[in-house]
Design a protein around this nucleic acid. Structure first.
Lengths: 229, 229
DNA sequence: ACACTACTGCCATAAACTGTCAGCAGGTGC
DNA sequence: GCACCTGCTGACAGTTTATGGCAGTAGTGT
């Protein structure tokens, strides 16, 4: 049983580094010989981990995560499936695709009878969200993840166009539209931006000076929104 | 590595039987000695599997499923999380709770930085579904899973009350209401029942004579709905 | 009382894992 | 070309772990 744990530790260690890490470094960190480390890496790759090793450079783990074995109840699986379905319908194409992929991965490992259940027990027929986003939603999500400043050209409900620098920290999925929540440098306050009204958007490499979760908390307090589940 | 696979096989074998199975039977089926089987069961239980063993009876696996280790991309995790959030908001309390539980399980094993991302990158602020269901939705889902006939007292949009026997095979989650799709013995056709208009409901132990997935397919064909992802 | 079962401890054997050593391959810098 | 760093593979002995058989305890249903 010690081995399985070590492999998970190794994965998390690999995730910590963004730059390539040498096998020797990983070996000392996990307290194991170099030879064994190579074997461990091979095991992880065999299990599907996206680890790339290049001679003279080191190892990099492609962004993502390996879930350890986990037990889900019947209803929890139904919830995951129903949720993924909803995402596959309601989110923008790229995230929707990810939802469908996740769903397929889960369905692939379920026993036959359960897969059948899943294919019928939960349907989503809600009108497909049709508002077309001009904005690049994956780019917004990435900016949120990495806490980067966005350069925004935005047309509000009255048609007035403005250019702003904003600090995006959340993206909300409403029934018909999606709204980016950000701190606006122009207004020095929180602002909501409907993604279908974003005319142009330039992600920058500049990190904004505050932490995303703090911004989120302050915004929630201001809005009177209780913290999420 | 053979051991991990054997444990998964053992789980699936356990799932196949509905009745308690003796350890000896499981041992021969997985090709292992009885002593080792006991150790394997202990391992699975240590990993969180809901296996119950009773002396003189055998082993039973509580309904549910253990996901093997799986790799998810960043976006797939975001999709799963966003979807679970939506379920936690939009579904009826019990399924919503399951969504929250699933979310918590996933969050618990994610590395810290990713957990932070998840706590802010996707929010759902859509108006909480407020229509109160008089119907017992978990019971409906169970009837669907097990293909049981439901005895229904239903009030339609004009207030006319009727009593019917129906064969439920799907449950759709719309924005404001939930709709059970079933074959109605009274009308000899497919009918949709808003769950908030179900006045009374009696699950029976009688299995309906057709297969759920076939009903679903016929209904889809009749409605002109393309098959789900 | 009896049959059946889960469960535990012990121990010898079998299998797997691990570390050390050696060597090959690919890329970088001198 | 040469030294150097790195990934990667094979072979072998030592160590650890897993396994199977055996004996024994205890709970359940007939």
């Amino acid at each position: 049983m010690a081995r399985a744990e070590r492999l998970l530790t190794l994965l998390q260690t690999l995730r910590r580094y963004r730059r390539p890490v040498s096998g020797a470094a990983l070996a000392t960190e996990t307290g194991v010989s170099l030879r064994t480390l190579y074997r461990d890496i091979a095991s992880l790759q065999a299990q599907g981990a996206d680890i790339e090793g290049e001679a003279g450079v080191g190892y990099v783990l492609k962004p993502g995560f390996m879930l350890p074995p986990m037990m889900f109840s019947q209803e929890e699986i139904e919830a995951l499936v129903l949720g993924s379905r909803w995402v596959a319908r309601a989110a923008e194409p790229r995230l929707a695709g990810a939802g469908a992929d996740a769903l397929a991965k889960i369905a692939a490992v379920l026993p036959d009878d359960m897969r059948e259940t899943i294919e019928s027990a939960a349907l989503l027929v809600g009108p497909r969200v049709s508002s077309e986003d001009k904005a690049d939603l994956p780019a917004i999500r990435k900016a949120i993840r990495t806490e980067r400043i966005l350069e925004l050209t935005y047309g509000d409900e009255r048609g007035a166009v403005s250019v702003r620098r904003v600090w995006p920290f959340a993206l909300t999925y409403l029934e018909q539209v999606r709204v980016m929540v950000a701190w606006c440098e122009l207004r020095q306050d929180f602002r909501h931006f409907r993604t279908d009204r974003i005319i142009e958007m330039a992600p920058s490499e500049v990190r904004y000076p505050r932490r995303r979760d703090v911004l989120l908390k302050e915004w929630r307090d201001q809005q009177g929104i209780p913290s999420e589940p």
